[in-house]
Amino acid sequence: MMKTLLKVEDIHTHIGQYHILQGVFFEAREGEVSVLLGRNGAGKTTTLKTIMGLTPASKGAVVFNGQDITKKATYTIANGGIGYVPEDQGIFADLTVEENMKVAMRKEDEAAYKRQDYVLQLFPDLKTFWKKDGGHLSGGQKQMLAMARAFVNDSKLLLIDEPSKGLAPIIIEKVMEAITEMKKSTTIVLVEQNFMMASRIGDRYTLIDDGETVHAGEMADLIHNEEVKRKYLGIG
């Protein structure tokens, strides 16, 4: 059995007076793609933000690589080996593609530049727009830059939030190819509304509804579970 890299145990998160997460559980196993599924506003994005320490949990625990990271600062969590691609991509609009990559690089050594070369092979468009401001890129290019930025460091785990959102089908295909390639060298937790995409690249799923985990298992099982898909995802 593959090693559990990330374990989220009964996390509760408050944002202001709102109790957003009310008991989310899930595990991400090494080398797999774990997908968080659920309707809009179910709490998927907040779950990723809570793992990253951006909206810290008020209860529960996040254990990464055997270490409790629940109360750690965001930068410590990132330096511990978690890369994050937020829903809005988080591109620094007034920095060029090159500068965006440079800010992301934790160590500017030979290994990092080799990794950058590899990332640019995955996303050749970025090389074309290397000196262009991030704010001037198309939605797809921004998504590629956000993923490249997260992947340029040797992260053990990547959290990717809705990479297909607002993208044309042909771009979604490219993003999927890239995630499949990234999966060979890292573990991925993916938030995705597009079930077609999620089911093609996900190994496991966790269904979140109204801020709590309601279902989890292997993706292959969910594909054939029409009742769960209809009840929680409105499809099928």
């Binding site: 600062a73 930068y75 988080g90 620094f92 007034d94 920095l95």
Partner: peptide, 23 residues
């Protein structure tokens, strides 16, 4: 690099932290 980080921080502090920088 520190200048880039400052400029990036002006735009999006959370993202800078998520990249491993102690803002």
């Amino acid at each position: 690099k520190i200048g880039l980080i400052v400029r990036a921080g002006v735009m999006d502090k959370d993202m800078v932290q998520a990249l491993g920088i102690n803002i």
